[in-house]
Write a protein that binds this DNA or RNA. Sequence first.
DNA 1: ATTTCATGGGTCATAAAAGATCCATTTAGG
DNA 2: CCTAAATGGATCTTTTATGACCCATGAAAT
Lengths: 110, 110
Amino acid sequence: MKRTRSYSRVTKQALSILGKLVKLGRMERGLTAAELAERAGITRKTLRRIEYGEPGPEIGTVFEVAALVGVRLFKFDERTLAMHNARLDEKLTLLPKSVRSSGREVDDDF
Amino acid sequence: MKRTRSYSRVTKQALSILGKLVKLGRMERGLTAAELAERAGITRKTLRRIEYGEPGPEIGTVFEVAALVGVRLFKFDERTLAMHNARLDEKLTLLPKSVRSSGREVDDDF
DNA sequence: ATTTCATGGGTCATAAAAGATCCATTTAGG
DNA sequence: CCTAAATGGATCTTTTATGACCCATGAAAT
């Protein structure tokens, strides 16, 4: 089955912005595409796809490249990230383990 | 060639958090994994990989799923996203088209 | 202007993700 | 308790991304 996916405008915008932030971050640091790609352990081509905001690249790779040029999705340091992560775990354990179709309410202030 | 990639702790944390936010968002809305997967046009398996914070899924899919449950990376509405996007374009056109290895400085206040 | 090098883009082989089914287990709810 | 349904996980196939080259173009620095 051929995979023809569609993406919402919000997603496209977010991808585009993220890609441009990466490119900007790379140039700020005077890195060539080849240099950054090597540091990230990927090829120039994959980096280009990321900087172009294409939806295909693996999210792990994108996050890694972003981190390398100082772009962080959640603007927290690692310690704070760990905290948030732990807090999310608490929330999740408090919830029912499976959903039985009936709109439940949970506070969501991240 | 076997692809054995490594990811920084920050990346892992960010992925983990994003996945949990998605799961939380899904449960808040009383959606089962199967329901959300269907809306996103993916399978339960892929959704699970996303909610588990695995690095493999395509970034476009992850963003799309996140958007479906109200989780946004850049907490702006679509209009604001477009604005930022345009601003980034300006910045990029002002920069030299290619990097010739020498640390350049650009202001970066996103 | 000339040369050097970054970037854009193409091809081909391969590894991995995604899809399609399965089945086992757990859990929500009557 | 019991049962229907949600979740977790396995396997097999298809589709796609990635990597490794390669070449053309265009920009940058001398």
